[in-house]
Amino acid sequence: MAIDEKSIVEAVSGLGFKGNEEGLIPAFGLHLTTHFADYYNRSSFAVARAMEGSGLEDDARALLVEAGHICAFNTFGGIMKSAEWDAVVAPMIKTREDWLHGIVAVINAFGWGKWHIERLDPGVELKIRIENSYECTGWLRDYPVSKFARCYLATGGVAGLMNLMYVGDITTRPELTEAYYVELFRGGDAFHAVETSCMARGDAHCELKAAKS
């Protein structure tokens, strides 16, 4: 494989993203934040637990995973179209699948925990293992072992990777419009992800699998 993950992580983490004179971080065609994991976790888990108390655990999960889909579409998609991608990752790309290995390397500079591609069957299935997921470490610090998987953002993210690559085609640099989002994530061909192992449930690590349903 041509992708040098260590070099990508070093390059991205070394970009030194920091607010400008307006306190904003414009990058990858987005406004980035270096946000607090505790904020996401406390907000998301409070809502999830409130809905689970009403027997709406599947609805809670679907809502929070959908936010992850939106993240993947815009953030991963924006990165893979960016000048930074062209400078750091694109020169290493030899195959179509290298796009996925490249974006996973970039993700590993975002503070989300360590993502690793366990299995990639192009156009069919993606299995990602995550060590030190920020969602799970937050859950386990504040709550007992969970009945449910808790990596909502990551679940949406893993499905989003496959939708960007194999339902759409991010390599052609499409406009990331609302209509394109609907085409990729709401059509009958869309990939959906499930979290088959989760540290919050007591598993050793988190594992997510995206496939067409």
Partner: peptide, 18 residues
């Protein structure tokens, strides 16, 4: 405290979801 990169699309979409 753990910090994580996220963009405005996710931040405001998650907020509206909640």
């Amino acid at each position: 405290s753990r910090l994580v990169f996220h963009c405005h699309h996710y931040n405001v979409s998650l907020q509206r979801t909640l």
